[in-house]
Simulated scan of single mutants.
Amino acid sequence: MKTTTRTAMNGLLAVLAALAMHAVYAVQPGDDPNKVARWLDFKEGTFKDRPIDTHGDPVIKFDAPARAADAAVVPIAITAQFPQTPTHYIKKIYMFIDENPEPYLGWFEFTPESGLASLETRVRVEDYTYMRVIAETNDGHLYSAVRFIKASGGCSAPAGKDDAVAEASAGAVRLQPEGQSTPGKPQLVQLMVRHPNRTGMAMNQVTRLYSSAYFVRKVAVTYVDKPVMTANVNFSISENPNFRFYFVPRDGGLLKAHIEDTKNKQFDSQVAIGPHPAVQQTSATTP
């Protein structure tokens, strides 16, 4: 009798432990055990033992296609569910694509000057995978949103241009505010960067050799010299990186973007916001 009771108790504890792990680590029903273990490794390496609220819808929403039309250019949208204020805001968004060669895509940092911590971009997806967004609020809490996507070959797909031509044309940067600027009201802006963003896993169709990795690694956007959006990312961002995000215009000032890539080349662009005519300026520097 005691043995039976002990066995039943051990079974109950195992079930409770499994349920607790599901709640904390955002394990999805039907996950391959090896893939689950892989995600838990990423989670532990990035967040240690910090709890993650898996019911993050009141904080962040994450949209991605269920099946990608092109695995090398997958549109995603991360939407904040409340405005940025000095007392309550989303400080950082981390992104993981579990089955990519480098699952940790990177992070995006926001401030109250962002107005909204929402972001749209395009990513590469190498295999059927879970994509995970973890939002960190300024009080240190973590919230997750998870989507499953069917796509394959996005990181190993050949580039559309000759490597030398693509690299020579890299560096054009454009900031494009959308709509009329209203002081104090969040305004959408698009940042476009011409860059091959090579993964190092695609075969050059002319030479039949693998092209070396070469990609944008850092993006920093400021308005009147205050941070709006900063990103540390890798080759999981698609060729010719494109980001849509928000900032809060004031009576006038310069919106600036600074880009750095893995060859330490730097590219800059700025646009005047407010009562002055919008003037786009772009420059590039090499080490």
Results as ranks from 00 to 15, higher is better:
A145M: 06
V146S: 05
V146P: 06
F148L: 10
K150F: 09
K150G: 03
K150S: 10
K150T: 13
S156W: 05
S156Q: 10
S156C: 05
S156Y: 03
A157V: 09
A157C: 01
P158A: 02
K161F: 11
D163F: 07
D163R: 13
A166K: 05
E167V: 05
E167Y: 10
A168K: 14
A168S: 12
S169R: 14
A172I: 10
A172E: 08
V173G: 04
R174D: 01
R174A: 13
L175M: 03
Q176K: 11
P177H: 10
P177E: 04
P177I: 03
G179M: 04
G179H: 07
G179Q: 07
Q180V: 09
Q180P: 01
S181N: 03
T182Q: 13
T182F: 05
P183K: 06
K185A: 04
K185P: 00
K185I: 11
Q187H: 04
Q187R: 07
V189D: 02
Q190V: 14
M192C: 00
H195G: 03
H195L: 03
P196L: 02
N197V: 00
N197A: 04
R198T: 12
R198W: 08
T199R: 09
G200A: 04
M201R: 15
N204K: 06
Q205E: 12
Q205M: 14
Q205H: 08
Q205Y: 11
Q205R: 14
V206D: 13
V206S: 12
V206I: 11
V206P: 06
V206F: 12
T207K: 12
T207P: 09
T207L: 07
R208T: 10
Y210L: 05
S211R: 15
S212L: 09
A213T: 03
Y214N: 13
V216Q: 03
R217K: 14
R217L: 00
K218Q: 13
A220H: 15
A220W: 09
V221T: 10
T222I: 00
T222P: 11
Y223G: 08
D225L: 06
D225V: 01
D225S: 13
D225M: 02
D225Y: 07
D225R: 13
K226S: 07
V228K: 09
M229P: 00
T230H: 13
T230W: 06
T230I: 05
N232S: 14
N232C: 02
V233I: 15
V233T: 11
N234Y: 07
F235C: 06
S236M: 09
S238E: 11
S238A: 15
N240W: 14
N240I: 00
N240L: 00
